[in-house]
């Protein structure tokens, strides 16, 4: 699939902001499943700083804006060619040992309900277990936008029984780790086909490390493994750690966030 992606994140500040610093994980991963033909990142009025590939294989760019500015826009535009690898992350260069992804974080900290969910899943081998864990999460948490927030933990989402892709991913990561499977949070894009899911084009899912196969993606929110509709950006222990944008600024007052993501299939 040839996907054209545009992604704009606008911040409007109530009072002028200065010294903005951002760390962007907004460049598609390099793997067999996706090839990036064009890609550009721009922050209005900003200066590109450090840029490097980290141990997880993610391309990181730091940007700074001296300001004062009343708004900034982080603009992403590019063209990626994808193919279905049945969710398996192949040909992705990374050097972090998978065992590093066994530790739970605040967002994935298990409570009794998560432990029970983990315990009840069966599996003849790692892959089978991972599929069943993903299914359990899909059954336990219904897709419902607007119920949970950025800070909602896996335990809270499970108690609510509702959530969005971030909550599905956190819950799946949490219970996979309980079962001894390294798991991590992945952020990226999803092309919604006409038959269409209602999910945002900015998407997130989980990857579980299965011995013999390596990292395999599981999208519990959609009940599938990532295929050619998915574009992978980067990973982390949880949503915060894998965030496409982490930023800070000096200045008072609120900021208004405006996000527009568009993932379109290109004409052949």
């Amino acid at each position: 699939m040839k996907l054209r992606i545009t992604h704009e994140t606008g911040y409007k500040y109530e009072t002028p902001a200065r010294n903005l610093v951002q760390s962007l994980r907004l460049t598609p991963s390099v793997s067999e499943g996706q090839r990036t033909h064009e890609w550009s990142i721009d922050v209005t009025g900003g200066m590109r700083g450090p840029a490097f590939r980290d141990g997880a294989g993610d391309w990181i760019e730091g940007w700074t804006v001296r300001g004062p500015v009343e708004e900034i826009i982080v603009r992403i535009a590019g063209f990626v060619e994808t193919r279905d690898t049945a969710g398996v992350l192949r040909g992705h260069r990374e050097i972090i040992n998978p065992l590093t992804y066994l530790r739970e974080t605040e967002a994935t900290e298990p409570d009794d309900a998560l432990k029970a969910l983990a315990r009840d899943a069966q599996g003849s081998d790692g892959l089978d277990l991972a599929h069943n864990l993903s299914r359990s999460v899909r059954e336990a948490i219904a897709y419902a936008p607007g119920v949970t927030e950025m800070q909602t933990t896996a335990a809270e989402a499970l108690a609510l029984g509702e959530g969005v892709c971030q909550d599905h991913a956190h819950a799946l990561i949490s219970i996979s780790r309980i079962r001894g499977l390294p798991a991590r949070y992945v952020s990226g894009y999803l092309h919604s086909t006409a038959d269409g899911s209602s999910h945002d084009a900015a998407h997130a899912w989980a990857e579980i490390h299965v011995s013999g196969l390596g990292w395999v993606g599981f999208d519990a929110a959609n009940g599938c493994c990532p295929d050619e509709r998915y574009v992978r950006l980067g990973s982390g222990l949880d949503a915060r750690d894998a965030a496409p944008i982490r930023g800070i600024r000096s200045g008072f007052g609120d900021e208004r966030l405006n996000v527009a993501v568009n993932v379109e299939e290109m004409e052949q």
Binding site: V21, S23, G49, P50, D54, G62, R240, R246
Partner: peptide, 24 residues
């Protein structure tokens, strides 16, 4: 660095880790 570690830390330097990791 609140952009890499605890986001609520006011003691560090935002963006420091990216500079460090790129050898600056």
């Amino acid at each position: 660095d609140p952009l890499c570690f605890r986001p609520d830390s006011m003691l560090g330097v935002p963006g420091l880790m990216d500079v460090y990791r790129s050898g600056g």
